[in-house]
Nucleic acid binder design. Structure first.
Lengths: 202, 202, 202, 202
DNA sequence: GCATAAGCGAGACGGTACGTCCTGTCTTATC
DNA sequence: GATAAGACAGGACGTACCGTCTCGCTTATGC
């Protein structure tokens, strides 16, 4: 792998660009944490970052995009789980991690972000892929391995199975009708694996 | 002991106009349908309803509340399914109805509504109960009957089971990573009933 | 001269509450004193007087009228001066009284009242007659007596003379470019009596 | 020592649009003429001037200030009289000019403006100086010259004399109890010069 | 002596304007 | 030649009063 050590092109009068970007994202993230989506206004971000509004508009077209970008920038991608020989145990571990992530304040921010954005905007898609579907994708790998190992039936619809596991987590995050915790994650996985069908079908 | 069946407080002053209320909700609903949440501004609603702004503020504290109220008011509650002797078939039928409801434009509105609102506002809770959890509650009755009839295991956690069924629908509605249709509803129910585990069920 | 003591038309229905009237005028006067004309809003008066708005509107058509009425009601008419054998001394005494009246807070209220009102409204005319021109009318009597006694020229235009005396008081009240005090009143009267013309006309 | 004639602060950012300023003042002046003070609302001015409300608020804090500024801006300062060798004749000519100015519609606007404004606001002071006291100041110069020439007594209090001449004009403008016209101006000046006292001047 | 009419408090109504905030664009002077 | 500063047109916000209108309730008079 080749590492480009900064080409350092001889630039006229734009030494500020990276610093400004960082300041903007940082200001936006702080505002988001302090006052939610509503507090992330272009004016507030500009003021706090010590930056002109046009500088922000040059990189993000509106406040939602910026808020999303800020949330993603401050996101540690690491829900990553190490894979062992027992994928179903890896899955259980990963679900607990996801629950942990959702339980923090970040969970609330994610919730707010989801419906606020234009559903079809480019950034919204990226956001969903990065923040929401990332764990599901990891889960997909685990399920596939479990099938290969014979731990799961080989006739299941993988996508349906994934939604049956990750959907409920998301459901409780957004609706909040029941607690979202490790116990739920465990019960969910157990029930999903075993099925609901009663005695008549052993 | 005499039971007064409604204290019915004396109500001083001019009563609120039900005509105005109706006009406001109607205007808000129309604007919502035409231009989404963003179009439901207090000013636009007031203008279209032929009503003063303070009249709106007297009943709803902000545009989101009003939009939610309008959506609920124009909502036909009828996901109601008739119950037969086979609750699992009733459940399948109901899931198809829910999918149908989510698939229309109303689905998009519901999606937008959810995250836009203050999560803990009173109206938001009512909204979630009426629009989101209503079907789930109906499902609960069906599942309970199924357990009584022995069609389902009697050791399942009912709440977990419900989320395992309704959560995925909601997941696809909001994230949109995969289609939300009858086929999905059917596969979902089938998989949930049967379980994912392999081996033991050759 | 026959004084008709009010034709007293036979009124049906509940008579207007004098208690309410008093409460309204009192509330208006207090508000006027506390916050000037701007504070005398119908709503504030109604709230403070413990009275419904229609009760106010039944007697006064707008806030300015009410404020004027309140100011007049709380006005002691007594600039009245006793008349002695030397009308010019009576006049000097009266001018001092007028100055005293204008110097208090009431002076400021009068000032505000004058231009705020519709110039040609009925109440504004009454106000001007009662509050502004009353003293001038008294002065007219005094000047006439002085002319009869030979203390003043008999070829002067009385109205012009009156405006030459009372106008400057009013001028300083409203514009405030120079102090309005007894010294001014004295100098004014002296100068007016003596004239400005120099040596050429002894 | 070097005297910098105007530090001329660096003025960061986009300068205020003089076109906008002109449009605002023009719109305000028109509205003032059409409907009086009450018609000069920020919204109406903004709409007519094709300008955002904040642009107005950036320069004037409320409608009264704006109306005053508009009236002053559209005011031709020209009551200025040319000075001849006979200052008392100059004075007579100037009084006729002032009367002319007060008699037009502008007179009514001035009247309304005076009491409507916060008495002690900065703009109100400027207004009084520019609109009301300007003529009086010119008169002061004329009187001084007349005294030097021996046409007036040299023992008069100049300020009192000025108020004795200009106060009555103002009095009739605001109270309207008697007509304000050239005849009055002439009689006023004559009476003031000659004095009111009888007897001593047979 | 009881009906009737008007006044009463309360408060909602359709409106208008307020003054603030934010948007997204633009125009400067600065670095 | 990109930046920060900040003015611009526009438009929604939520509030304050306006003057009018219902309410349900007194309170006098007059039939």
């Amino acid at each position: 792998m080749i590492v480009r050590v900064k080409p350092e092109k001889p630039k006229r009068g734009r030494p500020r660009s990276i610093a400004a970007r960082r300041a903007i994202l940082s200001a936006a993230a702080n505002l988001l944490e302090e006052g939610g989506m509503g507090a992330v206004t272009m004016e507030a971000v500009a003021a706090r970052a010590g930056v002109g509004k046009p500088t922000i508009y040059r990189s993000w077209t509106n406040a939602q995009e910026l808020a999303m970008a800020a949330l993603m920038a401050s996101d540690n991608p690491g829900t990553q789980v190490r894979q062992t020989a027992v994928p179903l145990e890896d899955l259980a571990r990963q679900l607990r991690k996801v629950v942990g992530k959702f339980t923090t304040k970040r969970g609330g921010q994610i919730r707010l972000m989801l419906a606020a954005a234009e559903q079809d905007s480019e950034i919204a898609k990226v956001f969903r892929n990065r923040v929401i579907l990332q764990s599901r994708d990891e889960g997909k790998t685990l399920l596939q391995r479990a099938i290969e190992l014979g731990s799961l039936r080989d006739d299941i619809d993988l996508e349906v199975a994934l939604d049956m596991i990750y959907g409920p987590l998301f459901y409780r995050l957004l609706i909040g009708h029941k607690p979202l915790n490790d116990a739920f994650a465990k019960a969910l996985l157990t029930t999903a694996l075993r099925g609901l069908r009663g005695g008549a079908h052993p």
